[in-house]
């Protein structure tokens, strides 16, 4: 399996506060990685650096063979290949769900409107929300909105999907419908990096687990090893608190 994302000695500061410390990470195609850790540990910052919603100051980030830095000319092209699902959904409230899904394919990928709509309906069906296509985001429940956001990202046919705490803003009973959609996606072979506290989901789909604390990767291990015999004390403590 080939590498699709590579981070080498990545450092990132917010003013004086160091958010990421010497991060080294390789992600292979079709690999599923779940990142967990206490709040403020840099998990979100890490995945936001991968599509440069945050800028890193030091080290290398290589996505699909292209390095991401301030000199990257075709940043938009790289971003188009990296889908992202946010904690707060971030659907476009002025557009219907269908338009949310077709907008980027039409304007960024120059896809004909008909094809874009067909693609959108296919992806909306995939997350089981096709019947809501004509509604506006404000008319949907949180779970439905998050599934729409997932469909929107999938419409760009990305090679990699990043999930930034996709279920943290949802009511408990809606978490499952979103996780189910993510499990389906994982089974279809998508490369995924997921920041989440849903350990059930992690056990089911993740190939590798990463535990972060204070900007550092404390532990990276196969999922089974991670849960059964974590090496570091910090990981043990964390797991004992959330499991």
């Amino acid at each position: 399996m080939s590498k699709i994302i590579e981070l080498k000695n990545v450092n990132k500061w917010f003013d004086k506060f160091q958010a990421l410390k010497d991060i080294n990470l390789e992600v292979n195609q079709q690999e599923k990685i779940v990142i967990c850790g206490p709040s403020g540990s840099g998990k979100s910052t890490l995945i936001r650096c991968i599509n440069r919603l945050e800028e890193h100051q030091d080290g290398q980030i290589i996505v699909d063979g292209k390095e991401i830095s301030e000199n990257t000319k075709d940043l938009e092209k790289i971003r188009a290949e990296v889908g992202m699902v946010f904690q707060q959904f971030n659907l476009f409230p002025h557009l219907s769900i269908l338009d949310n899904c077709t907008l980027a394919p039409i304007w960024v990928k120059k896809m004909p409107k008909k094809d874009a709509e067909a693609l959108a309906m296919k992806n909306l069906e995939r997350v089981q929300i096709a019947d809501q296509a004509k509604k506006f985001p404000g008319q949907l429940s949180g779970g439905q909105q998050q599934r729409s956001a997932l469909a929107r990202a999938l419409c760009m046919e990305p090679k990699i999907m990043l999930f930034d705490e996709p279920t943290s803003a949802l009511d408990p009973e809606m978490i499952k419908e979103v996780l189910d959609a993510m499990v389906d996606l994982a089974k279809a072979g998508m490369t995924m990096i997921v920041v989440t506290h849903e350990m059930g989901f992690a056990k089911e789909v993740a190939d590798n687990m990463i535990f972060m604390d204070e900007g550092k990767i404390v532990e990276k291990a196969k999922t089974k090893d991670f849960f059964e015999n974590p090496k570091s004390d910090r990981t043990k403590l964390f797991l004992s608190q959330i499991l």
Binding site: N51, E76, R79, E81, M84, Q88, L91, V108, A153, M156
Partner: peptide
């Protein structure tokens, strides 16, 4: 909200789009 900018960027849109 900042999220609107981020969502647009993450879909590969440039400044003008």
């Amino acid at each position: 909200p900042k999220g609107q900018y981020e969502a647009a960027k993450s879909l590969g849109m440039g400044y003008w789009k």
